[in-house]
Structure formats: C-alpha cells, structure tokens
Design a protein around this nucleic acid. Structure first.
Length: 598
RNA sequence: GGCCCAAUGGUUCAGUCGGUUAGAACGCCGCCCUGUCACGGCGGAGGUCAGGGGUUCGAGUCCCCUUUGGGUCGCCA
C-alpha cells in the first residue's frame, strides 16, 4: 500500500546534510538505493539528485509499524524519512560517501511508492548494454553520472546566458517551422495540413533568421538553439542537437574571436573552476593541414607532419620520386620511441592508412644505430641521413611516410597521427587545449554535384584580397571563416557574412546558381539585402560536444537526456512510428509502400 | 548504402577440439542475524544459448541469412 506524504515536508536534499546538522530533525525524500537488513536494525541508503544518505532504522525509536515497513522495502521504492541527524555509531565512517560521517536515525518512515526490480542496477559502474539502458532511459537517468552530466549542461547554458547578457546580447527565438533550403545537410520535413502538398523544414541552424535580426537592428543576438539534420548518426552526432548560437553587428573577426574566448573562459571558470589562459592559439587552415593533417587538430601533443619533398624529389625510391614528379606530396610522422613496434603492428598501421585511402605506408625504424626499413634499400646513405634530419629522428624513433595526392596524404597522416597518439597514451582528457583555425577555403569542389559548394555556408564572406579569384580560381578563395577546436573536436564555427547584395549574387554565381535559382531559394534574403545590412558575423558552438568534453564522456548520448540511436530512432518511445491513416488523409499524404506489400 | 564488432537466466560474463544434466558472480524469493555500507549465514527459483535455415550420429560452439545494438567510411553547407 502506498502512503501519502501529507503532513510531511522535505527539509533537505540527502547529500546536503553534514555534521553541522547534528541533532536536527530533518525529512528527506527519495529512492531506496540499498537496504541492508541486519535483523533488528536496518540500514537504508536513500538517493536523490544530490547523492546518498544512510538511514538507520531500529524498532525502539521507529516503532513496530514503521519498522515493519522497513522490512518490506526494496530497491527503488520511493520513501519519505523523518529523523534526527547523528554521527554514525560503532561501524565508523564510510569514506566513499560525501555524507559518510553521518546518518539519519529514523523516527518515521513512509512508503510513497513501490517499484518493480529494475532491469539493471542503478549505479555508476553499470555494465548493462546501451540498448537496454536506452530502452529504460528514465531509469538510466537516475544514475548519478548522468544526473551530474545534465546538471553540468544546465550550468554551461546558464553561464553562457549570463556572460552574453552582460555583453549586451538579446536572446531571441527563431522558428522551428521554416522553409527548406536544400544546400547543405538533408532537411527534416514537416507536411503542412493547410497547404496540402507543401512542407516546412526543421531548421539546420537559425542562420538566415539571425542574419535578418542583424539587418533589423538587434545588434547582438544569442539563442540556445535546437537544430535538426537528417544525416547518419555518430558518437558525436545526433539528428537533433543544440547550439549556443550568436550573431553580432559592426564587428570584425578579431572582435568575435576575442568575445568567444572570453565566453569559453567564463564557462570553464564558472562550471569547472578551471582557468583558461587567453588568447587561444591561432593557426590557419593551411597550417593546420600541413602540420596536423586535419582542420580540427588535436593540439595536446606533437607528432607533427614533416614534408619530405626535398628528399623525395629524385631519390632512389621511385614511389616517392614519381609522386613528387606528378605533383603529389610525400610526408611523414615521427612516432617517437616506437622503433621496436613489432612487424604485425606496423602492418596494422599500414592497413589503417589503406583504409583511409593510401596505397601504402613506408616505414623506417632507427634502433641502436641500425636502420630497419621497408624502403631504405632504395636510398643512399646521404638520403637516409636527409630523411632523419627532416623528420628530426633520434635513436628509437619510427618514421612513417605516405606518398600520394596532397589531400590523401593529409587525411591519412592525420588519422595515423591520432592512432599513434592513442597508442602512446597522449590523449589526456583532463587537458583542454583550444585552437582557432582560420582562413578556411570558401568553396569546395563537389564531384557528386559537379560544382563548387560552400564549405561553411553560402553567406560566408570571402577574404578581401581573394575576391578577384572568385572569377579565375574559385577553389583558392579563402573565407573569413573560423572554427574553434578543442582536443581534436570541432567545438564551434562561424564567419563574417556577406552584407553587400552584389557580392552575395556573385557568391551564388560561383556556386553555380542562376539568378532565377538563387531567387527561388533565397529570394527573401536577397530582397532584404536591399534595405541596409550592417557588417555582421557570428558563431555557433555545438553545446552537446562541449558538455561531452567537459564531462569527459565518450559520446554525446551521455549528455543528452533522451538521445536517439544509430538509426535515428528512440528505443524508449519507439519514435519514429506509423501514424493513423486519418492523419495522413488530412495532410494529403499517400504512403508509397515497397512492391509486394499490401 | 559499404566495412568491422557484439548478442548465453533479470544483469554482467565463462563455456576448451563440436560430445553426458549449460556454469559463476551479482540480482530476485524465503528463513536467520543489533552497527552495516560489496553486510553476513542457510535454502530456493530462474535458460526458446537473439530468430530462422544448413552441415553433422551429435551444434551454445562450424556455415549462411535475418533481427537488434555499437563503431566507422560515405554523408554531415
């Protein structure tokens, strides 16, 4: 039988209590984490979102009726306990518990609700498989670590709002039902009942709206914005996710980077009591690719790429020499101290390179003055010395080299660099190493579409000195676009926007849109651009990734209350699902079933 | 869409070379126990070995397909 809490009022969260509450009469309410029944005394661990407190039940104090309830308690029953805080008895303190010094000696106990035995233990070191945990997400969310993560997330958004408010930002909501602009990721579509056959799209980001707000004179906008992209999931990618989004008028790139560094500094100070020193490192896209083989470099360790062109051109190893001759690139990583990596492991690294598109991988190990290598036999002694010099190799090092088109070399060595860092245990989650990557290319050639696509988005402004290249060599144009990276993750990105109509039209032209197509897709924006657009720019952070890294979690699912699984479904609610035919009729939608189905 | 990994009581796992009745820990149920906190003691229940097909005298074990979940490539302006 469940009892009412009438007449009882909670006075404290469980883990708020301490010796300073000794002899106080308190009431806590929560879930039974554990019952330890010793016969004529019973210990309970009561859990609420603050943590655990031990409750001591003995019949002389509690009375026979409530004590009998204590004997019926099971895990996850909901209880109210009234009692007196006291130092623990002969058993002493439990150092593993924040409240390990004290306990509540119960004077009254009520069972507010019963509970079935949960399908897995609710504790942090739970080993239950993720699909089971996601099916019972509401139970998984009881685990302290997930509660901690969601509280952390709350603190991050609160800190962001506080800081941006002080900086003069206005929080303004933008619509969820928007117009589809098929440039970029796939849209989630929402059918319109009133306008049959027509569809809204859920926003991939509030991009256009925030730019219009600048045009409207709001000067500084921010939003904790939900965004939607109908693409495949990853550990760090969900179909719906949250951005800390902002846009500012009358600013240059430096203003935006400076503001956002200070925002991150404030968040990390408020939430983690960690001091970030400013300014952050800044490197250009070109430098990031050449040194780290990635546009989101992990700066926690070295292992930088080394250009071997000087050696490779005309050397005795034809794979190298021919690659250079045909305009390719030969680069290497020095895996410090890994000279004695067994052949089998080297083969595994070669496979990794092939997986990422390389034709092969050349290696050279130096150990006790001896050289062990897949290709040294093709090189002269001078060439080997040159190689060691270019890669700054010392005794005990292992050189791994790849020759291919430059983009392949960067990609492969970028991945190889991360793999070596993993093997050398360089990836310390307690280190937070930020870097700005600037001067991204404006455009990217799409083989599939047979045209240039905006790398960031079509409203990004080109760098002033590169504008003439738009007509001659669009692929070379750099944008005033920047990403903020943390430990090899893209944490956020933004750009200065185009604010002159003729430049925007030129941009659409470079993207291969005719004037008519551009108007068809973005006409309202081009119209708006006739009415006085201020210079403006902005940035958006991936909130989920930021919180994931702060929580040291391995997946953003650990920092989202109700995440979706790999096929974009929710195993708990079973969304998406079929709907009633009546609903479809109202929308004028016919479901086309695969052949063979009735 | 491609590739890789996983699935055995409620949970996490073991299960040898294909061979008798599929084991353990935790959890669950019952009894006992006054200082436990991984409480302890005694007893007990609980299995469509994910599903389907195949090979075999014999399949948890080998093969194929399917399902579910995870990772990843493509994709993600």
């Amino acid at each position: 039988m469940n009892e009412s809490m009438a007449g009882m009022k909670r006075t404290h969260y469980a883990a708020e209590l301490s010796m300073s509450n000794a002899n106080e009469k308190v009431t806590v309410m929560g879930w039974v984490q554990k019952r330890r029944n010793l016969g004529s005394v019973i210990f309970l661990d009561i859990r609420d979102r603050s943590g655990l407190i031990q409750v001591f039940l003995d019949e002389p104090v509690l009375g026979p009726e409530d004590f009998a309830k204590g004997e019926r308690l099971r895990a996850e029953f909901v209880v109210a306990v009234e009692g007196v805080v006291q130092r623990r008895g002969d058993g002493g303190v439990n150092p593993n518990l924040k409240t390990g010094e004290i306990e509540i000696r119960a004077t009254a106990l009520r069972i507010l609700n019963h509970a079935e035995t949960p399908p897995f233990h609710i504790e942090d070191d739970v080993n239950a498989k993720e699909d089971l945990r996601l099916k019972y997400r509401y139970l998984d969310l009881r685990r302290p670590v997930l509660q901690k993560n969601l509280i952390l997330r709350h603190k991050v958004t609160t800190a962001a709002r506080q800081f941006l408010d002080k900086e003069g930002f206005l929080e303004i909501e933008t619509p969820m039902l928007t117009r589809s602009t098929p440039e970029g990721a796939r849209d989630y579509l929402v059918p319109s009942r009133i306008n049959q056959g027509m569809f809204y799209a859920l926003p991939q980001s509030p991009q256009i709206f925030k730019q219009l707000l600048m045009l409207s004179g709001y000067d500084r906008y921010m939003q904790i914005a939900k965004c939607f992209r109908d693409e495949d999931l990853r550990a760090d990618r969900q179909p719906e996710f949250t951005q800390i989004d902002m846009e500012l008028s009358f600013v240059n790139q430096e203003d935006i980077l400076d503001l956002n560094e200070r925002l991150l500094q404030y968040i990390f100070k408020q939430v983690m009591d960690m001091e970030l020193s400013l300014p952050f490192k800044r490197i250009t896209y070109k430098e990031a690719m050449e040194r780290f083989g990635s546009d989101k470099p992990d700066m926690r360790f070295g292992l930088e790429l080394k250009d071997l062109a000087e050696l490779a051109a005309g050397c005795g190893f034809s794979v190298f020499a021919d690659t250079i001759k045909s305009g390719g690139s030969v680069r290497a990583i020095n895996a410090k101290g890994m000279a004695e990596l067994p052949r089998k492991q080297i083969d595994a690294l070669t496979e990794l390179c092939k997986y990422h598109g390389a034709k092969g991988m050349a290696y050279l190990a130096v150990k006790d003055g001896e050289v062990k290598s897949s290709f040294a036999k093709f090189l002269t002694e001078t060439e080997i010395q040159k190689l060691l010099q270019l890669t700054e190799a010392e005794d005990g090092d292992l050189i791994l080299a790849v020759a291919d088109k430059e983009e392949v070399v960067f990609k492969v060595l970028g991945e190889l660099r991360l793999e070596i860092a993993r093997r050398l245990n360089y990836l310390d989650k307690n280190v937070y190493d930020f870097v700005w990557v600037t001067e991204f290319p404006l455009l990217e050639w799409s083989e599939e579409q047979g045209r240039y696509m905006a790398k960031h988005h079509p409203f990004t402004t080109p760098m002033e000195e590169d504008i003439p290249l738009l007509d001659t060599d669009p692929g070379k144009v750099r944008a005033v676009a920047y990403d903020i990276c943390l430990n090899g993750n893209e944490l956020g990105g933004g750009s200065l926007r185009i604010y002159h109509r003729h430049l925007q039209e030129k941009m659409f032209e470079a993207l291969g849109f005719s004037k008519e197509e551009a108007y068809e897709r973005f006409g309202f924006l081009l119209d708006a651009f006739q009415y006085g657009v201020p210079p403006h720019g902005g940035l958006a952070f991936g909130l989920d990734r930021m919180v994931m890294l702060m929580a040291k979690a391995d997946s953003i699912r650990e920092v989202i209350a109700f995440p979706k699984v790999k096929d974009a479904s929710d195993p708990m609610s079973d969304a998406p699902n079929i709907v009633e035919e009546k609903q479809l009729r109202e929308l004028g939608i016919q479901v086309i079933k695969p052949e063979g189905e009735k």
